[in-house]
Structures are given as structure tokens and as C-alpha cells.
């Protein structure tokens, strides 16, 4: 792991799942921020420094995952549009084709091993 940890944002409405994801990534040495829906995440992106990676659920109140992606990707000149996004979907067999803006798509329940691997790879790319 890098000496300065990767900075990620987890967007998930279910507190239990949000908690376990946060704990898992922190255990792997990531620096983790969380948001409870798409609106919360957008507000944080405006306010705070940008993370190297966003992990986001699809079905959420207020602003869902699809809408969040649309918003941050619609203007390619915005710094936030450059952040890679991994979608974690509860909908079975969600394919990447259906979510063109996603850099990777995982179905719940996710395999932590593979998720950590993918997260690390995208954070690395994002930094360079």
C-alpha cells in the first residue's frame, strides 16, 4: 500500500452496508469518506477535496446512482468528471453496457477481494 493512502468516497443509503464497506476499505488502508445518497455525495464533491475514486450504489433516495453519474459526467471540463466511478448494484446482472459512465460494475453481494483489487487499480490510474 502507498504511504499516502488512497482517498475514496462511498455512496450508499443502507447504513449497515455503508458501515461494513467503510470498515473493509479502512482495514485495507484506504482513507474513506461516506455519503448516504447522491445528493449528499454531490454536496461533498462541491465542498471538499476530490477523492481518487467513487463507489456508488444505484437505488437510493433523493439522487440515485444513475442520476449522480449523469450529473458529474455531463460536463467533461469539471474536475469531478475525471474521477473513476465503481457502481455496486443490488440489481442482479447489471452490465457495464447499461451504465456507460461506470468504470466497473459489481453486483451485490460483492466479493471484497475483487472490489479491493479494482479500487486500488482505479485509484492508481486516477493519481497518475
Amino acid at each position: 500500500m502507498n504511504s499516502s493512502p488512497y482517498d475514496i468516497l462511498i455512496v450508499e443509503d443502507n447504513p449497515t452496508i455503508r458501515g461494513v464497506m467503510q470498515m473493509g476499505f479502512e482495514l485495507e488502508g484506504f482513507s474513506v469518506r461516506v455519503a448516504c445518497d447522491g445528493l449528499d455525495a454531490l454536496n461533498q464533491l462541491e465542498r471538499d477535496s476530490l477523492p481518487q475514486l467513487i463507489l456508488i450504489d444505484l437505488l437510493m433516495p433523493k439522487i440515485n446512482g444513475f442520476e449522480f453519474l449523469e450529473r458529474i459526467k455531463k460536463d467533461p471540463t469539471l474536475p469531478a468528471s475525471k474521477i473513476p466511478v465503481i457502481v455496486i448494484s443490488a440489481v442482479a446482472n447489471t452490465s457495464r453496457e447499461k451504465i456507460p459512465h461506470a468504470h466497473a460494475v459489481f453486483s451485490k453481494p460483492v466479493d471484497f477481494e475483487l472490489l479491493f483489487e479494482a479500487a486500488e487499480k482505479h485509484c492508481h490510474k486516477s493519481l497518475n
Binding site: 443502507n14 449497515t16 452496508i17 461494513v20 482495514l27 443490488a90 451485490k108 453481494p109 471484497f112 477481494e113
Partner: peptide, 15 residues
């Protein structure tokens, strides 16, 4: 939803 949570919690405990 709770099944996903449980699955991830157990994976993490294993790690």
C-alpha cells in the same frame, strides 16, 4: 439488503 450486508460482514471477518 440484509443478506448482502451479512455476506460482506462475514467476508470481512474472514479477512
Amino acid at each position: 439488503t440484509p443478506l448482502t450486508a451479512l455476506h460482506m460482514q462475514l467476508q470481512l471477518l474472514l479477512r
